[in-house]
Structure formats: structure tokens, C-alpha cells
Design a binder for these strands. Structure first.
Length: 157
DNA sequence: TAGGCCATCTGGTCCT
DNA sequence: AGGACCAGATGGCCTA
């Protein structure tokens, strides 16, 4: 049996590597679940179903509603509560509702690109085809082990 | 039902 | 001043 890697098959040394990985300690986790199974694709409105994208849209709608509501009341501003809810802060930064909304959008885009990078990394590390999609922490840890393995392989040949 | 994972919001800090 | 980055909080979904 060979391990499926993007676009190619890998020999038994790599299979042994995968078998030796600590990830194999919890094989039950690799059963396919309705949420994470199958596609390793980037989340998109078309394949997300009812989860994050629609939630995002709902949040956007709520935010916009809140925004229009607040704008109707006048030039509203966000007052920083400080870290962990403290009321006072040395450099309090006051932003408008519109700016807060824009910052939220930027943050969503930033996290989206971060997840794209995770998806790319998932495709680079060897996994069995039947495994469920790796979580982000699993992906990072597997990548570390994989890099170490390949480094050792290079040094010993 | 508890715990894991994730998306999102939010405010603080750093950088340009 | 505003964007990027980060971490904490929160809530939803899923699985064991």
C-alpha cells in the first residue's frame, strides 16, 4: 500500500514514517465525519453549507443592521473597553462603527488566507487517503515531524 | 453531554 | 491614522 501524496505515490520508507507518527495513536479520529470529510478544499460559499460562510453572512447582516441602526442615531463611535474588559486604557483608540465593521472584514480575509495556507500545507504532508481532514494543530505537528524525517533522510544518504 | 475544533468579533499593540 | 497581527472570548457544530 502506498501513501497518496499530491500528484504522486510514495514508497515504503514514507509509509513507515507515517506509521510511526504519533498521529497513528488515535486512529479513531481518522474516520470520516459529515463536517470535515472528503474535500480538502478551501471553504467557500458553495461547499460550506450552513456553517461558517452562512454564519458569516448572518453576522454581516446583523452587523449591517446594527450599523444602520446606530448610524440613524448619529455619529456613533466604538469606545475601547481595554484589554480583558478594563474600562481604562492608556492609549484608548476610538473608532466608528464603520471602521469596526471594516476591521472585521479585514480580519476575516486575513483568517481566510491563513486557512488557505493551512490547506496548502495539508496537501504537502503525507496522509492516508481515508484519513479525515487534519486539524490545524495536527497539520503543524505533522509538518514538523515530516520535515525532520526528510532532513534525516537527506543526511543519511 | 463534554471536549475538540473552528469562525468570528473585538480590542490592544506594533508598524508604516 | 489606519492596517496588520495577535490573543481572548464566544458560540456553533461534530464526535465519542
Amino acid at each position: 500500500m502506498d501513501v497518496e501524496l499530491p500528484g504522486r505515490l510514495v514508497d515504503s520508507a514514507l509509509i513507515n514514517f507515517v506509521n510511526d507518527m504519533s498521529l497513528i495513536e488515535f486512529p479513531q479520529k481518522f474516520t470520516l465525519g459529515p463536517k470535515q470529510q472528503g474535500d480538502n478544499t478551501t471553504p467557500s460559499p458553495s461547499n460550506q453549507g450552513d456553517s461558517s460562510w452562512s454564519r458569516s453572512l448572518e453576522n454581516d447582516v446583523r452587523t449591517v443592521e446594527l450599523r444602520t441602526e446606530l448610524l440613524a442615531m448619529g455619529p456613533q463611535r466604538y469606545y475601547s473597553r481595554g484589554a480583558h474588559g478594563h474600562a481604562t486604557s492608556r492609549r484608548r483608540r476610538i473608532i466608528t462603527v464603520v471602521q469596526r465593521h471594516a476591521a472585521n472584514v479585514r480580519e476575516r480575509k486575513r483568517m481566510f488566507s491563513l486557512n488557505e495556507a493551512f490547506d496548502e500545507l495539508r496537501r504537502k504532508v503525507p496522509t492516508f487517503a481515508y484519513e479525515k481532514r487534519l486539524s490545524r494543530i495536527e497539520t503543524l505537528r505533522l509538518a514538523i515531524v515530516y520535515i525532520s524525517f526528510m532532513t534525516d533522510l537527506l543526511e543519511n544518504t
